[in-house]
Amino acid sequence: MPSQVEYKTTRRFMNIWVYLALGAVGMIILAGLSSIFFVKPLASKTLQAREGQPARLQPFKVKPQAIGAVRVDVTARIPTNRYLAYEVQIRDQQDKILAAGLKNAWNESGIWREEGQTGTWQEDDLDAGLDVSSAKAEPLTVVVEVLEYGTSRNQTLTESVSFRIKVNQGIIDTRYLWPGFWGGLLMAGLTCLFSKSAGATLSDKSIGDSDLGDRVNAGGPNKLIKVIVKTVADETSPPSLNCRLMVRDGNGDELFNASEVMPLKFKRDEDGDIDSTHGQATFFMVLEKPSSYGFYVEVTPDAPVDSTRLIIKQGAVTLGAVKVAHIGAA
């Protein structure tokens, strides 16, 4: 009685971990994009401060939020070749400090000379920021205090400094999303590589001809068999070859016979001449009954074929839907 062969396009053997990792990356991207919709501006003003005379923002009211925090961004504005030490404080309605941060700011410039050429350079570090979460609705205020101000030549200055203060509520610190983003991409990439090589190798044989075969013990209703045929041919090869795979049982009866077109990739040397060609065909199947099976390959036309390699893997996984031949018991 001949065996029954049924073809199905299925995702049954798909490696779901690839898509879970990509899904996690997608969620991180979505979280980063959606964070801008939670931001609510509370204050934006430029104030002056000097030593002993801190700048104080008018109180603003915050409300508890499940997502995001209150973010205070402060930018000092000082001329070049000056340094500034200042403290940013967030205070409640009782003037109690809830959060504070010290900033050593500077703004420098100069002239560079190298190999007869000259130019100017300018660098600064003027920004400071604080995040705070409020558990209740209450008015808060921001205080900026100048601790030290001077020139790059260590000359102390007493003049006032301008500060740009911005307060927003609902800010999400996206810096912590980047490790998850890159980690998810790395996991997806590694899982893709693993998927291509997954499974136990039952046979890996090569021959300097177009026909090749081997017999292995394989099969099982839940085990995907992946048969890979690789061919190396010479410069007289057509654009594609025909690869035929036959599977026979222990008695030599043919259970499966199918062919695939094998497109060729032409490798050229430094002069642009064709050096060799490479092709590959892949077959997926499920052999319902565990037993001994013979796998035989014929590549035609055989004249340009230099070598053929047959790889048989059991327990393979896929990255998506593939066409699988289900071969029933004879």
Rank of each mutant, 00 (worst) to 15 (best):
A303N: 06
G213R: 01
L245T: 04
T201F: 01
G180S: 10
N257I: 06
G23E: 02
D92T: 11
R153G: 00
V161F: 04
Q314D: 02
P79V: 08
S292N: 13
V229A: 02
G170Q: 08
L224F: 03
E145M: 08
V324G: 10
A329C: 10
V216G: 00
V247K: 07
E6F: 03
S152F: 03
K136V: 08
S162Y: 07
M246E: 14
P139K: 09
S160D: 07
K103L: 13
Q280Y: 05
I90E: 11
D92I: 09
E145Q: 14
R82N: 13
N154L: 07
I29P: 06
W182A: 15
F266A: 09
E123P: 03
I67C: 06
D173G: 07
Q155I: 02
W106N: 11
M27R: 06
G328C: 09
E138R: 12
N107R: 14
Y86V: 10
D234F: 02
V322D: 09
A76R: 10
K61V: 09
F194S: 05
S259Q: 13
S34H: 12
P263E: 09
D271Q: 14
C243F: 03
A258I: 10
V299P: 00
T141L: 08
K63G: 01
G183K: 05
Y296G: 02
E148G: 11
V227H: 09
A258G: 01
Y19E: 02
A233C: 13
L140D: 01
E138L: 11
K323E: 15
P239Y: 11
P41F: 05
T151H: 01
T118G: 09
A321E: 14
D127H: 10
S292H: 14
P79C: 11
T231K: 06
G219H: 05
P79T: 10
I312N: 02
Q169V: 07
S152R: 03
A233E: 09
I36G: 08
A135S: 10
I165Y: 11
A99Q: 15
G23P: 07
C192S: 12
T308H: 00
D95G: 10
I165Q: 08
V317D: 01
Q314V: 00
I312V: 08
F295Q: 03
P41Y: 05
I97K: 12
S109Q: 12
C243H: 04
I111R: 04
G101W: 15
T300G: 00
A66W: 13
K40N: 10
A99T: 15
R309C: 02
V88F: 13
V72P: 07
A188Y: 11
V167N: 09
V146M: 10
R113N: 08
D211S: 07
L147Y: 02
S210T: 01
R11Q: 06
G26A: 15
G129C: 06
E114M: 12
A200G: 06
G101L: 13
G116R: 01
I16W: 05
A321Y: 10
P290F: 05
V146D: 06
S291Q: 14
D275P: 02
L84C: 12
R77D: 15
G116D: 02
L147N: 04
S206T: 07
S210W: 04
K265E: 15
S195K: 04
V227S: 07
T75K: 15
D271F: 09
E108M: 11
F295C: 04
F37Y: 14
T308N: 00
G213I: 00
V142Y: 11
P54N: 03
K40D: 12
I207T: 09
